[in-house]
């Protein structure tokens, strides 16, 4: 049984603490934090928009996919929305598992799929105002590498 926690919040993620991982079952905890880059001083802040309801459901769904694919004890996915300053955390994905390989792989999978399938949109603030960020082809490719043919997955 994998516990899946998902949250969308307008509050800083730094204050968010989890009590997972202390029951003696998880030998591995892999945590990814995405933070706001300043792109060499060009970007001053980000604004994140989401689709209330669907965003949370989509996060839970990709968590369920990870749970089917790897032996995991718990997953936490938190995404910040609203205005976010340079250096602050935008997203946090934490995976707890008995062993490290499952935790590393599942964490990478969750981030790749989150970036191409979960309804969230970034706007950047630079010197000339706010601009929507265009999706990058390499993010779609990163997600696609997990979608091996079913015959290969079954092995």
């Amino acid at each position: 049984m994998t516990r899946i926690h998902v949250a969308i919040t307008a509050e800083p993620l730094e204050s968010h603490l989890s009590s997972e991982g202390q029951d003696g079952r998880s030998g591995a905890e892999v945590r990814f934090s995405g933070r706001v880059r300043d792109e060499s001083g060009r970007v001053r802040a980000l604004f994140l928009e989401h689709y209330p309801g669907m965003t949370e459901r989509a996060l839970r769904r990709i968590g369920e996919h990870a749970q089917q694919r790897w032996a995991l004890n718990a997953i936490e996915m938190i995404h910040r929305v609203g205005e976010i300053q340079v250096g602050e955390e935008i997203v946090r994905v934490v995976v707890w598992a008995g062993h490290r390989h499952a935790a590393f792989e599942a964490c990478a999978f969750l981030m790749d799929v989150l970036k191409s399938q979960v309804p969230l949109w970034k706007k950047e603030l630079s010197d000339d105002g706010w601009h929507w960020v265009e999706a990058r082809e390499r993010d779609a490719e990163a997600a696609a590498r997990w979608m091996a043919p079913a015959s290969e997955r079954a092995r």
């Binding site: 995404h79 979960v118 969230l120 949109w121 970034k122 929507w132 993010d139």
Partner: peptide, 10 residues
Amino acid sequence: VALFPPVTGG
């Protein structure tokens, strides 16, 4: 039915 540009979260 929701219509939107390609997503850019994370």
